[in-house]
């Protein structure tokens, strides 16, 4: 992916994030996860609605850098409607891309915008932030 295209995707999702703003969850249908990490100042809440192995809805809110915010927005846009199994596949390939291991480029679509984030090692955790949240939530569901 060209650098200018990567920048355009990231800036667009940063400035116009998808599903930003938390929802009222009176019925308790969402799982809420906070990404406040010890090494980073990003602090994002993500709410997942997952039923019968399908991701029905995700929202997020919080304060975060351009990379975390855009990665969260793209992740949400990508995963709504996908099965948990498919989400695991995105997670595995996305992590592989960030950690410079072989991955399925075709699958990741707009998430390829972070394909060169390894060049800035201190930003890798920003790009991984929403997927770390996803992993925790999927693990929790499996454990239960």
């Amino acid at each position: 992916m060209e650098r200018s295209l990567r920048q355009a995707i990231i800036v667009d999702h940063y400035q116009n994030p998808y599903h930003k703003g938390l929802v009222d969850d009176d019925r308790g249908e969402y799982i809420k996860n906070n990404t406040n990490s010890v090494s980073c100042i990003d602090n994002v809440d993500i709410m997942y609605k997952i039923k019968d192995g399908v991701i029905l809805d995700i929202y997020f809110d919080g304060e975060a850098c351009a990379i975390s915010t855009s990665a969260t927005s793209i992740m949400i846009h990508t995963l709504i409607g996908k099965t948990v199994k498919e989400a695991r596949s995105y997670l595995k390939n996305y992590e592989a891309m960030i950690e410079e291991r072989p991955y399925d480029k075709e699958l990741l679509g707009e998430l390829n915008a972070y394909e060169e984030i390894y060049l800035q090692p201190n930003r890798k955790k920003c790009a991984l932030l929403p997927f770390e949240s996803l992993k925790k939530v999927l693990d929790e569901i499996e454990e239960n």
Partner: peptide, 21 residues
């Protein structure tokens, strides 16, 4: 602009500041 983005930007010019709380 989120503070961390500003810190990363300034680092490009070798200006070291702190972002965060």
């Amino acid at each position: 602009v989120f503070s961390q983005d500003t810190a990363v930007y300034l680092n490009h010019y070798h200006i070291y500041i702190r972002a965060g709380n």
